[in-house]
């Protein structure tokens, strides 16, 4: 039997990240998840690291642990993210900084460390997370959408830099999914947003998983620098 693939998922304690961790463990991956708070997910094939994705030393230490335990990483899912719905004129700088740090710098840091480890095996798949708020230029999400625009740009450039190592870098852009991230958004705003999609419904975890399945399947080794938005945005 082939060795299991090693997957890292950030923000794996709850929501989409946890769903993905459970899904890929069930499908034979060894999954290493991380989040700021401890996880109660206990599955054979799953291990959890407690860290802040912007803590460079902690992130490097986690990759060192993965390297020593498994010798490689095959897939990185950069799911960790925070949102803040605020009119730009009422957005504190500290909030903007937190969004940039977690959504952009955290994604960058994990991409960098994963690429360093994937380079050794000359193969790897990186999937980043953006949002439909970016192409829709949603009012009230200026900073959040800007951090994800940065993630999209990073995705496209890394795809070029890392292509020589057979590492693909793509991004998925979910519509609103019922998670903690959307809990604080007023219903009227969510309804208006869903009305702008080609298909008028909430996203489901399985919709996101489906795009990730596509990006990481062996046949997708010619798919890189792509951003797929759900719902027809």
């Amino acid at each position: 039997m082939a060795n299991p693939q090693i997957m890292i998922i950030t923000g794996a304690r709850k929501g989409i990240g946890r769903f993905l961790a459970e899904h890929y463990v069930q499908h034979g991956f060894d999954v290493v998840g991380c989040s700021r708070a401890p996880s109660d997910l206990q599955l054979p094939g799953y291990q959890h690291h407690r860290l802040d994705v912007t803590d460079e030393l902690a992130v490097k230490q986690m990759f060192l642990d993965v390297s020593r335990k498994f010798g490689r990483v095959d897939v990185l899912i950069n799911n960790a993210g925070i949102a803040s719905m605020n009119h730009s004129q009422l957005t504190p700088l500290s909030t903007a900084q937190k969004l940039v740090n977690t959504n952009f710098l955290g994604t960058f840091l994990f991409c960098r460390e994963a690429a360093n480890l994937m380079q050794r095996n000359r193969s790897g798949r990186i999937v980043n997370f953006t949002t439909v708020a970016t192409p829709l230029n949603l009012e009230g999400e200026a900073v959040y959408a800007a951090t994800k625009a940065a993630v999209e740009s990073l995705t496209r450039t890394l795809a070029r830099e890392l292509a020589e190592f057979n590492i693909t870098v793509n991004a998925v852009g979910p519509t609103p999914v019922k998670t903690d991230l959307t809990r604080s958004v007023p219903q009227a705003k969510l309804d208006a947003l869903i009305a702008r999609q080609a298909i008028h419904r909430y996203g489901e975890f399985r919709d996101i998983q489906n795009v990730i399945d596509f990006f990481i399947q062996p046949e997708s080794d010619f798919i890189t620098a792509q951003v797929i938005f759900l719902g027809g945005v």
């Binding site: 460079e56 030393l57 490097k60 230490q61 990759f63 060192l64 390297s67 020593r68 360093n116 480890l117 380079q119 050794r120």
Partner: peptide, 20 residues
Amino acid sequence: VNFIVLLEQRIGDEFGLAVT
């Protein structure tokens, strides 16, 4: 770039140290 990445990893693997 590859050389520096490989050395960083070697320092990690051989000495257990996470360095940039």
